[in-house]
Design a protein around this nucleic acid. Structure first.
Lengths: 203, 203
DNA sequence: TTGCAACTGGGTCAAATGTCCCAGTCATGG
DNA sequence: CCATGACTGGGACATTTGACCCAGTTGCAA
């Protein structure tokens, strides 16, 4: 195995772990499976991490940070310039997220498993909370931008609106992962966008 | 251990397994943990079930069947008689589900884990699909009743409406399990009811 | 009552798994 | 060039876990 710094090694192991969890599930992400994926030896694992739990904890944090980039709001502006309504903007955002989900369902499944893992112990519960706080924060930014672009004003605290939208996205994700029904997912997105856009009024 | 028929024993083990999964998670539901919960010996387990997997598969089926009873639609009629609108009826239904969730969060968490477990293998994926088909069916019944009681007509196939509502419920569940924010859950319920009720028109 | 099949308890086995040790290797500063 | 410490590879070990065997026991049908 090539030589690398402890930091690089930790990063490489986390990448490998994420691939294993995505492909086979958290339960199958044993230390041996992870180092095999990373092409290292077991000793390297325990040189970089004190325990498997430590890696999983760090994995949760890493993965949340990455998600932030995945759903960027760059295209919002052009859509609004093209005369889209707020509801249309929100729906477009949800559909963009849905494409992200369709492109890599296993990744979202992995995220769900990591959340549930975190929920199972009091020490890790904060990790799950941080994960969702991060989602909400991300959606807040998009909602603020969307409202500005369409000259609307949120009648509720935008965090509240975002929290609702995150819940709807989660529901869309979970149900689609089960039945893989694209049309149904599109209907969920439309209904969610409708409900959320009604939380705004002309500025 | 008292003597009982193979059928009773299987049922008792499934009950015990559900308790263990709810309390400690699927990963901790080892054969030993399950028989300890049931107060039996390991041999009894393997007398009743060929393998742990066989029990888990049966657990998923059992648990779905039980869920059907939990969200009964008895109170719909009285609410409608009191002059509630369709949106109010749907919201009341969601809030009733939410109370169910609040009363036993670990149970819903167990359901989620079982779903994800089923999603992880092609052979078991149909179990998850059946689980959700059962939810949709249940919601369809309630939606049909609610529309009748308020003199409304669904503009979409009621199965589509139900599928959306199931997605919203899932989102409500997942996010609430993380942040335990009752007020936020109530807002999700209201928004979901709003969106769903707009899928109907006066008959 | 008695024979038998259903059933049980305790122990055992092999595999998987998390953790860790130790002898060796390699890069780098002096 | 070489000493030193960071890093690696290959095992080893205890524990957990799923599976299951076998000698006994017990309810029940005849």
């Amino acid at each position: 195995m090539a030589r690398m710094s402890a930091g690089e090694r930790r990063a490489a192991l986390i990448e490998a772990a994420l691939r294993v969890v995505s492909r086979e599930g958290l339960a199958q992400a044993t230390t041996r499976a992870i180092v095999a994926e990373a092409g290292m030896s077991l000793a390297s694992f325990h040189y970089a991490f004190a325990s498997r739990d430590e890696l999983v904890d760090e994995l949760i944090g890493t993965v949340v940070a990455r998600e932030r980039k995945a759903v960027g709001a760059e295209e919002l502006a052009e859509a609004a310039a093209a005369g889209a309504s707020l509801a249309e903007l929100v729906e477009a955002g949800l559909l963009r997220y849905f494409e992200h989900l369709r492109a890599d369902p296993e990744h979202e499944q992995a995220m769900l498993e990591l959340t549930q893992y975190a929920l199972r112990s009091p020490e890790r519960h904060p990790l799950a909370i941080a994960q969702y706080a991060s989602y909400v924060e991300l959606v807040v930014e998009a909602l603020v931008a969307a409202a500005e672009l369409t000259g609307a004003r949120w009648r509720l605290p935008v965090e509240h609106v975002a929290r609702v939208l995150v819940a709807f996205s989660d529901g869309l994700t979970l149900t689609w992962l089960v039945d893989r029904d694209d049309a149904a997912a599109a209907r969920v997105a439309a209904a969610a966008a409708d409900a959320v856009s009604r939380m705004a009024e002309p500025a």
